[in-house]
Simulated scan of single mutants.
Amino acid sequence: MKFKSLLVLTLFLLFSTLTAVAQQNSDITTFVLVRHAEKIDDSTDPDLTPQGYQRAERLAEMLQNIPFDAVYSSERIRTRETVRKIADQNGVEILSYEPHEPAEEVERLLHSNLGKTVLVSGHSNTTPFFANELLDREHFEDKFDESDYGNLLIITIDGDGESKLLHLRY
């Protein structure tokens, strides 16, 4: 429990700082990328497990003080349910994006969200490559392990196109 409290406090301070910097410099765009929480089975479009809903709740608690301007998800139930509460907390609808077209989608999302803070919910086989496109370099060589649901990627891109990555676990 102490670890969770410390992690939440650390994330709050980090995001508060990032938000303050972004508000002072509207040229900074911040993307927070997550993989969907635990899915109930391997069918085409499964819902989350009870543990997956708990993880989604924990994510919403961790990010509750971050003002997201937009929330994106693939069209799958599991990705949408992972970020539903965060979208509700921010009074925004969950917008769709095509995770299998990272180059085109990054260009589109960057263009429509300059200077904003954006949450993107994806998949183990798409999120790392979406991050690579945002970073404009190959940081992730492979997809995330299928059993790994705890990656939280924060990518900031300044007006000159310089990007930075903070890779956290939750």
Rank of each mutant, 00 (worst) to 15 (best):
S5W: 09
L6R: 13
L9Y: 13
T10Q: 15
T10S: 14
L11H: 14
L13I: 11
L18I: 08
V21P: 00
Q23G: 13
N25G: 05
N25P: 00
S26R: 15
T29N: 02
T30Y: 02
F31Y: 07
V34C: 04
V34E: 01
R35W: 03
A37R: 12
A37M: 10
I40P: 00
D41F: 04
D42G: 07
D42C: 06
D42F: 07
S43N: 11
D45W: 06
D47N: 11
L48M: 09
T49H: 11
T49C: 10
P50Y: 06
Q51D: 14
G52E: 06
Q54V: 07
R55H: 04
A56Q: 04
A56M: 08
A56T: 11
A56C: 09
E57V: 05
E57P: 02
R58F: 15
L59S: 07
A60P: 05
E61M: 12
M62C: 12
L63S: 01
Q64P: 01
N65Q: 08
N65I: 02
I66T: 13
P67D: 09
A70Q: 10
S74C: 14
S74Q: 08
E75I: 12
E75P: 12
R76T: 11
I77R: 14
R78M: 15
R80D: 04
E81L: 11
V83Y: 03
R84L: 13
I86W: 00
I86R: 00
I86V: 13
A87L: 11
N90F: 10
V92R: 14
L95Y: 05
S96F: 09
P99G: 07
H100N: 10
E101I: 01
P102V: 07
E105C: 04
E105W: 01
E105D: 12
L109Y: 02
L110N: 06
S112C: 04
L114I: 05
G115S: 03
T117E: 04
T117H: 01
L119E: 02
V120C: 05
S121Q: 05
S121P: 04
S121F: 03
S121H: 05
H123A: 05
T126W: 01
F129T: 00
F129Y: 08
A131K: 02
E138L: 04
E138Q: 09
E138F: 02
H139S: 02
F140Q: 03
D142S: 14
K143E: 10
K143V: 08
D145K: 13
Y149N: 05
G150C: 12
L152P: 00
I154K: 05
I155C: 06
T156P: 00
T156S: 10
D158I: 02
D160Y: 08
S163M: 04
K164R: 06
L165G: 06
L165P: 02
L166Q: 15
L168P: 01
L168R: 07
R169I: 07
